[in-house]
């Protein structure tokens, strides 16, 4: 009889293993895919000689294992090659893209957890069933919304009907000419809709999950004891109920990172937000193999680093996890 399923934990050893696995998988998929990338790249007009020359120039005529080792060797030194589609160094493209993704995903994680937990806490403490039911329905609906469609609706309402917010991009065309204060406002206006899309969906998921864990803690005797001691409702909620009920939410945070990042890919695509997701979508559509490899690697790294951070956080908040 095998041991019960161990909790999903990365640890410092498994994190690099996952990244290595993603890289290997991506590489294999790229090479298993039918069709010659060079033929696709050059189009039907290219002569056989042209195709052969480009293949040699890109190193595609080498054995797959050798190509893989070469790629790893260069990637470790931060050299991801040159984009086939744009001719720019891939490392530079990603270096420019990652802050946008981290800002978008990071802010939406923070906001959606704060608001989602607030909704769940309100649901657990309210005595009115109607409020509880309405909030349940709302968070269920939010969690069910597909990101790209919610993005579409927000654009219809806020960009085209009300004309309040820009529909795409990270900065206006005139951003470089603006005063620093106005430039910041312009940035924030561009951030608003992508952030709202990810956050609204995140609130739904977090509230649904947190509501469940808070309800399980609600029957614990230590809450009755705290009330019997004369602790006020606020103290019971913050000192006793939330402190215990939110521990699983920290685990959820780590587990939901891949999903959050996935959601961000669609949302970045819809809003042309210049992050890793947009780079990946464009590279995939253009079959820009070096960029696909690098963007996948970086996204796996971000996800794994996030999971490790969540695990460290769990150790900090739950003394029982340290033993």
């Amino acid at each position: 009889m095998p041991a019960p399923l161990p909790p999903l934990r990365f640890g410092m050893i498994r994190a690099p293993l996952v990244v290595f696995g993603v890289v290997t998988l991506t590489f294999l998929l790229l090479h298993l895919a039918p069709g010659d990338p060079v033929v696709r790249l050059l189009g039907p007009e290219a002569s056989a000689l042209d195709v052969a020359r480009i293949r040699a120039a890109l190193g595609l005529d080498r054995p797959v294992a050798e190509q893989f080792l070469r790629w790893i060797g260069r990637a470790i030194r931060g050299d991801f090659g040159t984009s086939i589609a744009t001719g720019r160094p891939v490392a530079r493209m990603l270096w420019e893209a990652w802050p946008a993704t981290v800002i978008l995903v990071g802010l939406s994680i923070g906001l959606s957890h704060l608001l989602g937990i607030a909704v769940a806490a309100w649901q657990t403490t309210t005595r009115r069933r109607a409020v509880d039911g309405a909030l349940s329905g709302l968070s269920g609906l939010l969690a069910a919304l597909p990101g790209y469609w919610l993005a579409f609706v927000l654009v219809v309402v806020f960009s085209y009907a009300l004309r309040w917010l820009p529909a795409f991009g990270a900065a206006g065309l005139d951003a470089d000419l603006l005063e620093p204060g106005a430039r910041l406002l312009d940035r924030l206006a561009h951030l608003a809709l992508p952030l709202a899309t990810l956050t609204l969906i995140g609130i739904g998921t977090t509230a649904r999950y947190t509501q469940g864990t808070l309800r399980r803690v609600a029957a614990e005797p230590f809450l009755t004891l705290a009330r019997a001691k004369g602790a006020g409702p606020a103290r019971v909620l913050f000192r006793h109920h939330l402190r215990n009920g939110l521990i699983p939410v920290v685990t959820l945070l780590g587990l939901s990172l891949p999903a959050l990042f996935s959601g961000a890919v669609f949302v970045e695509g819809v809003f042309a937000w210049p992050g890793i997701g947009s780079v990946l979508i464009q590279a995939v559509q253009a079959r820009d193999y070096p960029v696909v490899m690098a963007a996948t690697t970086v996204s796996a790294l971000l996800v794994v680093l996030g999971s490790v951070a969540a695990e460290v956080l769990l150790h900090r908040v739950d003394p029982r996890a340290r033993s």
Binding site: L8, V18, V22, A33, F261, R287, T296, A300
Partner: peptide
């Protein structure tokens, strides 16, 4: 098998979907 499952769970699903969908017709 369990390790494989944990590994696959840690992958960003949409990234994989994009890859698979883009490389084949």
């Amino acid at each position: 098998l369990l390790g494989l499952t944990d590994f696959a769970l840690a992958l960003p699903r949409v990234v994989l979907l994009l890859l698979l969908a883009a490389l084949w017709e």
